[in-house]
Design a protein around this nucleic acid. Sequence first.
DNA 1: CTATGTTTATGGTCAC
DNA 2: GTGACCATAAACATAG
Length: 434
Amino acid sequence: MLTQKLYPDVNPMSTSTNAMSPMTPTYSMNSMAMAQMNCSPQAPTMFGSTMLNTGMSGSIAPMNRIQSRMDQPMNDGPQLGYTTIGSPISNMNACMGATMSSINNYNASIGRGDLGGGDTSPNSALQRARSDKPYRRSYTHAKPPYSYISLITMAIQNSPQKMLTLSEIYQFIMDLFPFYRQNQQRWQNSIRHSLSFNDCFIKVPRTPDKPGKGSFWSLHPESGNMFENGCYLRRQKRFKDDKKEVVRSSHKSPSHSADSSSSGKKTPLQHNDDLAKAHHLDKVNDNLGPMLNLHPSKLDVDQMNILNANELHNMQQHHHHHHQNMTHEELSAMINRNSHLALTDHHNMLHHAPMNHHLKQEPNGYTPSNHPFSITRLLPTESKSDIKMYADMQYAGYNTLSPLPNSIHSHTSLGNDYYNSPSLYHSSTGTTSL
DNA sequence: CTATGTTTATGGTCAC
DNA sequence: GTGACCATAAACATAG
């Protein structure tokens, strides 16, 4: 089967279609944005920075929730998820940029009535796009340039408790990306697969006071730098939970019992794993800040060097083991601690800490958070109190006073839209298939 | 029964 | 070319 276009069609006027969704217009990437990304079309080093530890304590409010709920009702579980107000909490934060804008643009299109991938009427999005300004078009149903792992991570990171049910993850994605209101069975299967298959996602059981179906999904506290290369299409390095890896290995080889990982005794595999860990201070460094509940910038290189590998390792082991049996509150608190770390500091730590070998260094002057498609930009950094304020405003009916769709509000409040900015659509480069 | 979760398989893209 | 990563499909199990 042909795979989908991963990168946007660079020709704004293109009517090329996607193998999976014939009615789905492709969207464009302008050359300036590409240049800023400092990557070739074939080299997806384009999107931002680390998703975790980026100080994303805020939330993106779902857009067009009502619409998406028509497609799929929400799970009736506890509302641990992201805020359910009806319009984007827009980001008044200056760091917000193109990605959020592009997402808002998706929804702005919906606000204009572009919903419905099969609309072929003269008023369809495509038609309108053609008749609009030369370089302006709708990307409402374009496949977002994020991997499923990215999308899930976004969703979880944007939830107040840093954990979501499966249906809440679905909902987040559909709210943000109209593309995913189609073919739900298909991509939702992929989401479930991603959650199960990737160690970076962990299941948090429900507590008796929060009955419902399915567990909560959270991010593994040690998976923080999966996207440190700034690419949200493809991780630089898959996060592997050592413990799960051992279990997997033992399942493959009958000589090892799966239970051995939970016993006091260590298997040879585990021992090797320990040694490997002890010799990989870089990995430990990645997690040192969160584990110590220290702001990375306060942890200078010398301090890191002072701490010996064994101590770090023990700490990590304890940390690792502990989280497996954490309560919601503990886990949530821990993940929140991770999340409060500012991206730039975290980035600095990763890039200046010694022995951080396996992560590619970005070119000089490159700052992931500056990237137009950085998830740092996608996800706001405002405080929960800010969000609550916005939510209260929404509930208080502020939003209903306006004749404009919510999405338009957010859209206009942001500006700086790379997808829509005429000045940015002036040439094309290649495309890449997935 | 349906939603959720796990696992295996297959094929594509990309970096090295 | 190879391995890592990713998307997708599908079979199957299980919980509510």
